[in-house]
């Protein structure tokens, strides 16, 4: 069964006339990596925002586990069910990396006794050592911030992970590591991973690739499984 289903989803930003998303229908399954590609401004980030439950679509519906996001407690959905890696990171810039992760764990209500320990380990996995983890986000490089964003998205063990250009600021080695994490999340832990990307490297690991053009969805390639 599909974990996420989009039915003819359309969206328009408040105060604008032009629809950014038009009649998008798509299903996402557990255990798969999806990538979405498309020109800048085609609506990829907007689509992810709706999937992330940051807003509700105009017409159409988005179903998570069969229930409409419009009717769901979206705060709870964001806190527990979904992990988002934002294009612009959206971390608490005044707080340290590890504080960002611990706060996210608190919000989702994770039961770990030693949340800080867990956070350090998670950051270690995406290549952030303890010294860096104790620095404020403001004092981290773009690539480091991106990795903290990835760690935060994974910190509460969500069902669905969505990532907006997650490797844009990473060097090749780290990109490789991060992609390995994504594929193992999908293939070993049966998560649904949705990635927006321009990178050929990233699309190469995808089970399904979709394209966006001016707010509409196009099928690009389907990997034979």
């Amino acid at each position: 069964m599909s974990v996420l289903v989009l039915n003819e989803v359309s969206y328009r930003y408040e105060g604008t006339k032009k629809a950014v998303l038009k009649d998008i229908s798509l299903s996402f399954d557990n255990g798969k990596v999806y990538t979405i590609v498309g020109k800048s401004g085609s609506g990829k980030s907007t689509l992810l925002s709706l999937i992330a439950g940051l807003d509700v679509c105009g017409t159409g519906e988005i179903l998570y586990g069969g229930s409409d996001l419009k009717k769901l407690d979206r705060d709870n959905y964001r806190a527990k069910s979904i992990g988002v890696i934002f294009q612009s990171f959206n971390l608490l810039t005044n707080a340290t990396a590890v504080e960002n992760i611990v706060l996210s764990m608190h919000i989702s209500g994770r039961k770990e006794k030693d949340k800080k320990m867990f956070a350090y380990e998670l950051l270690e996995k995406v290549g952030i050592d303890k010294e860096t983890a104790d620095r404020k986000i403001l004092k981290l490089s773009g690539g480091e911030q991106q990795r903290v964003g990835i760690a935060r998205a994974l910190s509460h063990n969500p069902d669905v992970i969505i990532a907006d250009e997650p490797t844009g600021n990473l060097d090749r080695d780290t990109e490789e590591d991060v992609l390995n994490i994504f594929t193992s999340l999908a293939h070993e832990e049966n998560k649904c991973v949705i990635i927006v990307t321009h990178s050929k490297k990233v699309t190469s690991i995808a089970d399904e690739v979709w394209g966006m053009h001016a707010g509409r969805l196009l099928a690009v390639e389907q990997k034979a499984q």
């Binding site: 705060d75 959905y77 806190a79 959206n90 971390l91 005044n94």
Partner: peptide
């Protein structure tokens, strides 16, 4: 912005 981030992380109003 800080509030937006907290809300995106699932913190209630």
């Amino acid at each position: 912005y800080e509030i937006g981030v907290l809300r995106a992380m699932g913190m209630k109003k």
